[in-house]
Amino acid sequence: MKNLNSLGFLVGSLLLIYPKVTGVRDITKDNYNIDEIDDVDNRLWNAYRRRPTYLILASRIIRPSSIYQIVVNLYAEAEPMRVKASLSRDGVEVSGSDEFLSSLEAKSILLQVPEGNSQEYSYKLRVEGFSQDSAALLFQNETRLEFTNRFLAIIISTNKVVFTALHTMRVRAVLLRTDLLPYEEVADIFILDPDQFIIRKWHSKQLNNGVLTADFELPEFPKVGFWTIRVVAQGQIEEKKVKVEKYYVPKFETFVSMPAFHFPSESHVEVIV
């Protein structure tokens, strides 16, 4: 019985005694970086942890039916990403495109501005950068744009500067887009008297390689003053003033003296004016 008691005491003592394990450290209580423990070089990853630096160049003014260009440049701290540019009108996206860019690379993003000449719309440009690996949003930038309906260069010319009764007014208008290409759509042209009454109009007149022509004969008793030639193309209006005066073309009396007869054998005839 004494031996059994001694054995039980020995077993209990063995349960309380355990060897000390060496070479293991509880890293949760240390202030070391996990990269230092694993001896991993993550300097490139640490560089990408900073906010990416970029440059966006775009016009603040947009015009209808035109190509809107945005230039995006990524600097050294930016990782390769997908950059998306979108154009919204009253909160609804109307045009969008994206490009893949690497560090120290610049690319152009082209957006098609829709038709419409109303200046009541609110346009915004939004540029976003997404990671190529995880598709995470890296940056975003949104700004308000100014809308103008002047997207054409319209030059109006006439055959004269001053007109009078029964003269034919020949009008020619040249319409060029912002890229200096001819405007190929239709346009309206109006002739207005000094009281701004429409005397003649041509609706949806087709252009010939960007050139619009029209002829108008003045009445016998026109109103004296400045008449207006108005050209309208998709809401853009261009006007030119011409003067109508009441004047008479001076008459000249000409006296011609020549021989009373002429022989067929003569090569020329002498005339005195």
Rank of each mutant, 00 (worst) to 15 (best):
G23C: 02
G23P: 01
G23T: 03
V24D: 04
V24Y: 07
R25G: 09
R25I: 14
D26C: 04
I27Y: 02
I27Q: 04
T28D: 05
D30R: 03
D30F: 00
N31K: 09
N31V: 05
N33V: 05
I34G: 03
I34W: 06
I34A: 09
I34V: 11
I34Q: 04
D35R: 09
E36K: 13
E36A: 11
E36M: 10
E36L: 08
I37K: 03
I37S: 10
I37V: 15
D38A: 10
D38F: 11
D38T: 12
D38C: 06
D38P: 00
D38Q: 15
D39V: 12
V40M: 13
V40R: 09
V40C: 14
D41W: 04
N42E: 05
N42P: 02
R43M: 10
R43N: 13
R43A: 11
R43C: 12
L44Y: 09
L44K: 08
N46P: 03
A47G: 09
A47K: 09
Y48E: 10
Y48C: 08
Y48D: 06
Y48S: 12
Y48N: 14
R49Y: 06
R50H: 15
R51Q: 14
R51L: 13
T53Y: 11
Y54N: 07
Y54K: 13
L55G: 13
I56C: 05
I56D: 07
I56L: 09
A58Q: 03
A58R: 12
A58G: 00
S59K: 12
R60N: 13
I61W: 10
I61T: 08
I62M: 04
I62W: 01
I62K: 04
I62L: 10
I62Q: 03
R63Y: 12
R63C: 08
R63P: 00
S66P: 00
S66C: 02
S66Q: 04
Y68M: 00
Q69C: 06
Q69L: 08
Q69K: 12
V71W: 09
V71G: 02
V71Y: 06
V71T: 12
V72F: 05
L74M: 07
L74H: 00
Y75A: 08
Y75P: 02
Y75W: 11
Y75M: 15
A76R: 08
E77K: 13
E77W: 03
A78M: 03
A78L: 05
A78K: 03
E79Q: 15
E79Y: 02
E79P: 03
P80T: 04
M81R: 02
M81N: 05
M81S: 08
M81C: 15
R82C: 14
R82G: 05
R82H: 06
V83F: 02
V83K: 01
A85C: 10
A85K: 02
A85F: 02
S86A: 13
S86G: 15
S86T: 13
L87P: 01
L87Y: 04
L87D: 01
L87K: 00
S88W: 06
S88T: 11
R89Q: 14
R89C: 10
R89I: 10
D90R: 07
D90G: 04
G91S: 08
G91L: 05
V92Q: 11
E93H: 15
E93Y: 14
E93A: 15
E93W: 09
E93S: 14
E93V: 10
E93P: 04
E93I: 14
S95G: 13
S95V: 03
S95H: 07
